[in-house]
Write a protein that binds this DNA or RNA. Structure first.
Lengths: 145, 145
DNA sequence: CCTTGACTTAGAGCACGCTCTAAGGTGTAC
DNA sequence: GTACACCTTAGAGCGTGCTCTAAGTCAAGG
């Protein structure tokens, strides 16, 4: 959905920005109100939001943070630091480093869980349609409800 | 925290089960009420829950499903199927297979986000304490608030 | 001019997954 | 027998992250 030759076109409406980022219009406004997004420029007459390329780039980054489970409150802190300028670079970097570790842990946990799930699926294969009782479930058949 | 030589001891109280699984007492009862856990046996006189090894094993599996983002409603469906016995094995296996794909996707997404975060951290290193404006943020310094 | 439609705001509402409360039962220790 | 710890239940409450509503503004088209 690039404009012409892919050069700076800027100025998307909130709808267009929603379409492009995959967030809802509501969520975009919510993020801005929450102070996560710095400043979105407005159209002179109407006061409507006009998303520029750098806004969209930053929103993509915010999406990364959310995807990886960073709470809104921490993203607010990060955005606050950005607003304070360069003197906060170290702290921002430290936040990202801490978050990086959490993400690595998350990935490791998911991988362990994936293994467990795969193992369970293989169990269903092994004990397939002949026998039933799997290695960790001997329930069923007793009408509990 | 195994009992003696690590053999079958069964019969943990809800507190002990909570300690062992890392879930709260409240959550254990909530899961049972929600029909996620099949049956937990009760003490004759008091009616108190007595968690057996297989209960704990199954709870660990439930934790895997939750960790990987399976909604409670879907876990309820899975537990329902278990209660219906062996004829539902295929459907249960299908559920796990579908979930496995979602988990794989999640991991891929997390890894992509991790890369983005790492890249951003490296940016802070590169533009370090000398210059400030990073590749995707030229905010700051304009007192918005 | 006036309708249409996309936008604006502040604030209410909602789904999810717990988490806690209130009122009461059981059983062991003194 | 009574204090105490620990359990039971049904149901209310809560934090998070959206999601939606109501009331109003603006600009372009007929």
């Amino acid at each position: 959905m690039k404009n012409k030759t892919g050069e700076a076109e800027t100025a998307l409406t909130v709808q267009a920005a929603a379409a492009q980022t995959g967030l809802s219009v509501h969520t975009l406004r919510y993020y801005e109100r929450a102070g996560l997004i710095p400043s979105i420029r407005r159209d002179d007459g109407s006061g409507h939001r006009r998303y520029q390329d750098r806004d969209l780039t930053f929103i993509e980054f915010l999406k990364r943070l959310r995807t990886t489970g960073m709470p809104i409150s921490e993203m607010q802190r990060y955005a606050d630091l950005m607003r304070q300028g360069n003197i906060t670079m170290e702290e921002r970097k430290a936040m990202l480093e801490a978050h990086r570790e959490r993400v690595r842990l998350q990935i490791a946990e998911l991988q362990a869980s994936l293994s467990a799930i795969e193992w369970k699926i293989e169990n269903y294969d092994r004990l397939g349609l002949e026998q039933a009782v799997s290695t960790s479930e001997k329930e069923g058949t007793n009408g509990i409800k």
